[in-house]
Simulated assay, not measured.
Amino acid sequence: MEHYDVIVLGLGSMGGAAANTLAERGAKVLGLETFAPGHDQGAAHGGTRIIRQSYFESPEYVPLLQRAYEGWRKLEAESGRDIMELCGGIYIGDPDDITFRGSKEASELHNLPHEILDADEIRRRFPTMNPADDAVAVYEANAGYVRPEETTIANAQVAAKKGATLRFHEPVTHWQATPNGGVEVVTTQGTYGADRLVITPGPWAPQVLPELNLPLSIDRMIFYWFSPEYSDAVPYERYSDKQHPVYIEETHGNQQIYGFPMTDGPAGGLKLGFFRKGSPTTANTIDRNVYDHEIAEMRERALQLFPYLTGPVVQAKTCLYSVTPDEHFVIGAHPLHEQIQIACGFSGHGFKFVPVVGEILADLALDGRSAMLPPTLFDPKRAVLRGA
């Protein structure tokens, strides 16, 4: 049985970043993945993911995001791929709503460059939008999007160049801690041993970590691409990432939406979706079809902000969120086995942290601690995960 310093179970976004960082630090690494690099079966696909630092979810995330930005640029340089585009971001809502208020508070606390815009200024600068008259916004120039498929492929390529052994299309059937303090992992093709194990299971967490009984909701989500009706006043260029920001909006309790500029030309459509409007499923049983009533509901909501988004739907795709009760991540030592590190429950907002999560997991696997890891925010043993 071949032996490694660290085995990484799952080479999606977080696992690929962990394998990359571990290999860079000189560890003998084996990465195992059921699917191909950049696959569309989990949570790391769909062409774009928002990246931002004015973080309404909690100001505690901002230092991690600042570190992540460094990691994104490093991954671009090492892979030669275009991964991150900073086209700006706008977060629109009622003055007391979390979308606006939380973004403003995070910006002020961490001295992030930002602007406060009223509804008239939003319309003037971004004529694709027509927010409510009393809406306000935080505009952050240092925001934009990253490309998830490019990211997972880049991490795999760079990790392999640094010496990691990566095995795709090799499902893991069993893993266990061993009496000597190591681990053993069994796949459809062999058995491997290691001193340490990193488990990044994505929406398969309930199946891969059943002993923890984590209270994760695995939700079927949808993102949509709609075609605008162009005019001389609002031509295609106004929707392109040269002139249009990423966006998040919730006003008067109308359900938070998020989305992107048009990144694939005039025929590509404007991508958007509901942030928290999923239906319970599992990674193995998700319905990948998107239905007419779902498209109609999304269009009705989108028109509240984008009055010209009346053209055909270009496409719609499903995605999976793994949501914790407090919507914060799960990162840290397995509660039963200190030689095993876990990362899951990224709750629909984790992708922007990929490089820094990779660093944290490498720290934990090799050193047993990470100075970048918030003391309690992501603790696998925190009360909300124990039903306390």
Results as ranks from 00 to 15, higher is better:
G268L: 09
D40F: 13
E33G: 01
G46T: 09
V330F: 07
L65F: 04
P201Y: 06
Y247D: 03
M221W: 07
P37Q: 00
E2R: 15
E229H: 14
A154D: 02
Y61A: 06
K381C: 13
L212I: 02
H337A: 11
P95G: 02
A205R: 04
T310G: 12
A106T: 03
L32P: 05
I7M: 04
R101V: 15
I340T: 02
P312T: 15
S322C: 09
A383S: 10
P374E: 02
V354E: 00
T188K: 13
A44W: 06
G268E: 10
G387Y: 10
H328M: 11
M14H: 02
A36P: 11
H337K: 10
V330E: 03
L320Q: 06
T251Q: 10
F226E: 07
T34D: 09
V198R: 00
N284Y: 15
G42W: 06
Y224G: 13
L272W: 05
P280W: 10
R238W: 12
E78F: 03
D5H: 07
D326G: 11
G16Q: 01
P127N: 00
R167G: 05
K28Q: 11
G311L: 12
A18V: 01
Y291I: 03
E2N: 15
T21H: 01
A143T: 02
E24H: 02
G190N: 08
K352T: 01
T263L: 06
E78K: 05
G268F: 10
P325L: 11
S347Y: 09
F346S: 08
P266W: 10
V354L: 07
H334S: 13
Y236H: 09
L270E: 06
H328S: 13
D287H: 07
A19S: 02
V246A: 05
E229M: 12
E297P: 03
Q339A: 15
Y4T: 02
P131G: 14
P179S: 14
F223Q: 07
E327S: 10
A43H: 05
E184F: 07
P63G: 05
T263A: 04
Y4P: 01
M84C: 08
L385C: 04
G387V: 10
Y230A: 01
H114V: 02
M14W: 00
A159L: 03
V62W: 05
P245W: 13
N289R: 15
E211D: 11
P63Y: 06
A194G: 07
N20D: 10
R67Y: 11
A233H: 12
E327V: 11
A17R: 00
E60R: 11
C319L: 04
T152V: 03
A296H: 12
S279Y: 14
P210T: 08
L32T: 03
S58R: 05
G89L: 07
D94W: 04
I331P: 06
C344N: 02
G182T: 06
V314G: 05
I153W: 03
G259P: 00
D379K: 06
A143F: 10
P171M: 08
M84D: 09
L212N: 11
